[in-house]
Amino acid sequence: MGNNLSILNKSTVYSEDVKIVALIGPKGCGKTSLVRRLTRDSLHQTSRNPVSSTRRVTHTEINLRGIRIVVLDTPGIGYLGNCKEFSERDVLDLVESWLRKHRRNARLTGILYVQNTDRRVMPTIDSFREICESNDFYSSVVLVATGNLDKLRELETGIWSEVLSRGAKVFPFTGTKESAEKAVALQTSGLRPGRRFYRATAQ
């Protein structure tokens, strides 16, 4: 998969044929680490402390399997910046503002909701429905698990169960570039809603 990804530096207004995917999730869940794997950024090491380093929407344009994709990294929900805690609505407003400047139809292709398995936080994504292209909102959502993937089943049968029953997909992010590419590729693969994706772990 590595040969199918290239970093593009052009900033422009994106047409409907470009896929735009937003990384959403609690602070310190691993959104920025996933982007760094996509861009081969080994110059910055992610802190072990669960504190978000993203304070605004940043975007990375890639070409994956011949498809142009823009990945938006967002501040973590619950991140404390400028003396205020970022809420789901605050992050939504930032993404919507970015879309108005860079997207003709001001809509997202889909959402990668990133969550560390050790931090049991209910996915807060319903309000993003209003800025997603698909009429079937949850089919455009991928729940990306980071951290201890042995605990993934607990999330699926617990706080993720309702979102999964509505058609969201699951992907375990293992921290590699290949895994990051696969997570993003789910938004453009056309796979049916509700399908789970697992990678075997070493015993």
Rank of each mutant, 00 (worst) to 15 (best):
N4L: 13
S6T: 15
I7E: 13
S11E: 15
S11M: 11
V13I: 14
V13M: 03
Y14N: 08
Y14P: 04
S15N: 14
S15W: 00
C29M: 10
G30K: 03
T32Q: 05
N49H: 10
V51T: 13
T60D: 13
E61Q: 13
E61I: 07
N63G: 04
I67V: 11
G76K: 03
Y79I: 00
Y79D: 13
C83R: 09
C83D: 11
E85F: 00
S87M: 06
E88M: 02
D90Y: 00
D90F: 00
D90C: 00
L92K: 07
D93A: 02
R100C: 12
H102K: 11
R107P: 01
R107L: 14
I111W: 02
Y113M: 05
V114L: 07
N116D: 14
N116E: 13
D118V: 01
M122F: 06
P123Q: 08
T124A: 04
T124Y: 01
I125V: 14
D126V: 00
E130I: 00
I131L: 01
C132V: 15
E133S: 06
N135L: 09
F137H: 02
F137V: 05
Y138L: 07
R153D: 15
R153C: 12
E154F: 04
L155W: 10
T157P: 01
G158T: 13
S161W: 02
L164D: 10
S165V: 03
G167L: 09
G167Q: 10
A168H: 09
F173G: 05
E178F: 05
S179Y: 09
S179E: 14
A185Q: 12
A185E: 14
A185F: 08
L186H: 08
Q187R: 09
G194P: 02
R195V: 14
F197A: 04
Y198I: 10
T201S: 07
